[in-house]
Design a binder for these strands. Structure first.
Lengths: 202, 202, 202, 202
DNA sequence: CATGAATGAGCCTTCATTCAT
DNA sequence: TATGAATGAAGGCTCATTCAT
């Protein structure tokens, strides 16, 4: 055949892709590196050559998942426009992302389960790296008088945790294909709570 | 000596307790049943006699954790009084519980990681069994005109997911000893959102 | 109940009986002493009190089987009458015995399989103890001129091995309920061969 | 070194050979796969790679034994010449084979003891596959008027069982190095019985 | 005497990782 | 550079035996 073998980058991507699916479907510990190699069509040694060991391979999949997520959310977070609308939009995009890639949720759970404590959670690293963008949105909304004076940090954490809880529990309950619908009430409650004129001081 | 050895129930509890800590600290797959036996001071065979196999032992710890949680929340959920106050109280109790028993969070994560799909998640079974009590509180509050007309089911789910996300992410970030403080903003946002006179229609 | 528990001898017999069936059905190594105890309805400790250990229990079943066999064959071997007829009769009785108690065949195989070499085979001990009775029959027949001059020892061994082979292979092939029919041709060939007037010198 | 390690087929043979000896000497259940690996000088994993599991390894030894036996008997069974002489020759070869490889007898016993019923006995499978060759010899002898009119099937079974009984009992009695001498009387009795001019109708 | 809970040595099997080709 | 055969540490589970009650 013409392209008998993929080039290095393509092969790495193929391994990552397959590993991701296997880790999500079978769990980290139940996934045999050999099975990934067989599925991709490379030797087991190649995987070790590319990724060093099983743990590193796994982490690479977790990172790729988060990179993927960020690549979808960043454009929204950095877009001009009504901050309230953007907050809603990014929240929905977050849910839609996991709805389209439910195995990423499993990856996050697997990571925590297997490596709890030994290294910082990839999910939280990415949250930390990007939360300032979300906080900027809140600041902007506050400056425009669209939302009440709130502790931006606490509210960001609360919202992030709410979305996380919704996505994870939704997937656990087999509603991964409808995470958006599941999240809408939670998002609306959040927006309701932060907006002005509700006569309540938080 | 008087109490040379524990009675059957005590021994079972001791095994469950130790298993719980080991599973939480090392993960399900990284925990050697022998290590649990050694720590408890019984033979490995005794553990197998009591629980059948490693998986059953693990599930027993997950169940015990949930029973424990329920035993703390039920009295609040079934208490008379201001529903809004009770909602807040039960949410705080939920967080306090996990703050005091952070390893239970790990147990839930481990369960999902290892047995995803093969059996319904213990956490969700318990949530399902007890959610009607929470919904009753919302209904009561609604009847009293304390909160807006909302879809009780959706709101319950949203709130449960929020608390779950807060607890899990809090533990992941090493803030397990202060889950209550972490949750307060989220709880207040929720209460703000559902209460009347905020001029917003959900 | 009146006879709440069996007396010592009865209990020993019951254990032996059950052990025999279990060892034959499941094999020595696959038989759990606990299972025997449960089936008999006694404590496991009782079995150990009566028989010492699993191996001794097994040997006791092998011995009982052989005692049983001998108790059926002896009367024939020691009976007066036509030696040729008695030879045939004892051979048929041997086969009939195993046809009626096919699990004894398994016991013999199990014994050999598990204890090969470590102790003399029960089956062969009994054969040795009783072969002189068979040889007496041959001597008698020879003295009466009914059979040719043969080496009694060799012929006895040859016949015993033939019957053994027939019984064992018959059972292995699932023809344990018809060992007699299977043996008749072999027995007749044997009788034909040893009798006079066949013009052949062995 | 030139032949640093054995090639695949050689290694498989070495494992089979060693396994065969261990299973025969210690019994199936008492043989530790690790011990075989150590003796052969390979890792335990290698054995599992080659044979899958302990049972399959065992069955492979049983099959190899039978293939070996057949490879020795077939040339005789298919040779031209005096059928009576060939019958005697093949019988002697059968005994000589087990005399030279007495551990194969143990393998057959072990197989039956451990797997009774769960799978057809290897020994009997091979007997079934090759008995027609022996029956052909009998037919030929009958056609030539060398032996009486007999039921070929019954006689074949009788003879096979006789040889089996002789070999097994011979080995059990520690006479494995002289099975041929042990069998000669039985073989001669058989040949005497089937040949013509003995004035008896079976 | 009888019991059966407790024990722990023993063994099969898996799979991450290595390294000779 | 790619491969995949070989490795062996690790761990789940069983069950004969003991002994306190």
């Amino acid at each position: 055949m013409a392209t008998k073998s993929l080039d290095k980058a393509q092969k790495e991507q193929a391994i990552l892709q397959t590993a991701s699916l296997f880790f999500a479907r079978d769990g980290y510990r139940n996934t045999d590196v050999q099975a990934i190699a067989d599925e991709v069509g490379v030797g087991k040694g190649t995987i070790y050559r590319y990724f060093g060991n099983k743990e590193a391979l796994f982490r690479a999949t977790a990172n790729a998942a988060m990179e993927h997520l960020v690549s979808e959310l960043r454009p929204i977070l950095t877009r001009e426009g009504d901050p309230i609308a953007l907050i809603k939009e990014v929240a929905l995009a977050y849910c839609r992302f996991y709805s389209q890639h439910p195995h990423y949720v499993e990856i996050l759970i697997q990571e925590r389960a297997e490596f709890r404590g030994s290294i910082p959670d990839t999910h939280l690293i990415y949250r930390a790296k990007n939360r300032s963008l979300f906080e900027d949105l809140l600041q902007r909304a506050m400056a425009l008088g669209l939302i009440r004076k709130l502790d931006v940090n606490s509210v960001t954490t609360a919202f992030a945790n709410t979305l996380y809880g919704t996505v994870v529990c939704g997937c656990l309950q087999g509603q991964s294909d409808d995470l958006v619908a599941l999240a809408v009430p939670a998002i609306d409650l959040f927006l309701t709570a932060i907006q002005v004129d509700n006569g309540v001081t938080l």
